[in-house]
Amino acid sequence: GMDVRRLKVNELREELQRRGLDTRGLKAELAERLQAALSGPSSG
């Protein structure tokens, strides 16, 4: 899988935006949010 901790802030935001998620917050928050999205149930 993707290691969200290795991504830069702008990369985290890009991935979040692609999934329609909130791109605001600290890098740690963005990484946590993206990780949750990646490990969560895949819809679609």
Rank of each mutant, 00 (worst) to 15 (best):
G1R: 13
G1L: 11
G1V: 13
G1A: 12
M2T: 08
M2H: 08
M2S: 07
M2E: 06
M2G: 07
M2D: 07
M2F: 13
D3H: 08
D3A: 07
D3V: 08
D3M: 07
D3N: 10
D3W: 07
D3L: 08
V4K: 04
V4Y: 04
V4P: 09
V4T: 07
V4A: 06
R5L: 08
R5N: 13
R5S: 14
R5I: 08
R5P: 07
R5Y: 07
R6E: 09
R6Y: 09
R6D: 09
R6T: 10
R6K: 14
R6A: 11
R6N: 12
R6L: 11
R6P: 04
L7V: 03
L7T: 03
L7Q: 03
L7I: 04
L7G: 02
L7Y: 04
K8L: 09
K8S: 15
K8T: 15
K8V: 06
K8F: 02
V9H: 05
V9Y: 11
V9F: 10
V9R: 05
V9M: 10
V9N: 04
N10I: 09
N10D: 14
N10T: 13
N10G: 10
N10C: 13
E11W: 05
E11Y: 04
E11I: 05
E11V: 06
L12Y: 00
L12W: 01
L12S: 00
L12F: 01
L12N: 00
L12A: 01
L12D: 01
L12E: 01
L12P: 00
L12G: 00
R13H: 04
R13W: 05
R13I: 14
R13T: 05
R13A: 03
R13Y: 06
E14T: 09
E14K: 11
E14D: 11
E14S: 09
E14L: 11
E14R: 14
E14I: 10
E15H: 07
E15R: 04
E15N: 03
E15K: 03
E15G: 01
E15T: 01
E15Q: 08
E15V: 03
L16R: 00
L16Q: 01
L16E: 02
L16H: 00
L16S: 02
L16Y: 00
L16V: 02
L16F: 00
Q17H: 14
Q17R: 15
Q17G: 13
Q17F: 11
Q17Y: 10
Q17L: 12
R18W: 03
R18Y: 04
R18P: 01
R18K: 15
R18H: 07
R18E: 06
R18G: 05
R19Q: 05
R19V: 03
R19T: 02
R19Y: 03
R19P: 04
G20Y: 01
G20S: 03
G20H: 06
G20I: 00
G20V: 00
G20T: 00
L21I: 08
L21K: 05
L21P: 03
L21Y: 00
D22S: 08
D22F: 00
D22I: 06
D22N: 11
D22H: 06
D22P: 14
T23R: 02
T23S: 06
T23D: 14
T23K: 06
T23M: 02
T23F: 04
T23Y: 05
T23Q: 06
R24E: 15
R24K: 15
R24H: 15
R24A: 15
R24M: 13
R24N: 15
R24Y: 04
R24F: 05
R24P: 05
R24S: 15
R24Q: 15
G25I: 01
G25A: 01
G25F: 00
G25Y: 00
G25L: 01
G25S: 01
G25W: 01
G25R: 01
L26F: 08
L26I: 14
L26N: 15
L26M: 12
K27T: 08
K27E: 14
K27P: 14
K27A: 10
K27H: 14
A28W: 14
A28V: 09
A28Y: 09
A28I: 08
A28L: 06
A28E: 14
A28N: 12
A28M: 07
E29S: 05
E29F: 02
E29D: 09
L30P: 00
L30N: 00
L30W: 01
L30I: 03
A31H: 05
A31D: 03
A31K: 08
A31R: 14
E32S: 10
E32T: 09
E32P: 02
E32H: 10
E32A: 15
R33S: 01
R33D: 02
R33F: 02
R33H: 01
R33E: 02
R33G: 01
L34Y: 02
L34V: 01
L34Q: 00
L34A: 01
Q35K: 10
Q35A: 12
Q35H: 10
Q35M: 15
A36V: 09
A36W: 05
A36I: 10
A36F: 05
A36H: 11
A36Q: 12
A36R: 14
A36G: 08
A36E: 10
A37G: 03
A37S: 07
A37V: 08
A37Q: 05
A37T: 05
A37P: 01
A37F: 11
L38A: 04
L38H: 03
L38D: 03
L38G: 03
L38Y: 03
S39A: 13
S39Y: 10
S39V: 12
S39W: 08
G40I: 10
G40Q: 13
G40L: 09
G40F: 08
G40V: 11
G40K: 11
P41L: 14
P41Q: 14
P41R: 07
P41V: 14
P41I: 14
P41D: 14
P41N: 14
P41F: 11
S42F: 04
S42M: 10
S42W: 02
S42Y: 04
S42N: 14
S42D: 13
S42E: 13
S43N: 13
S43V: 12
S43W: 12
S43E: 12
S43A: 13
S43P: 14
G44Q: 13
G44N: 13
G44W: 09
G44L: 12
G44D: 12
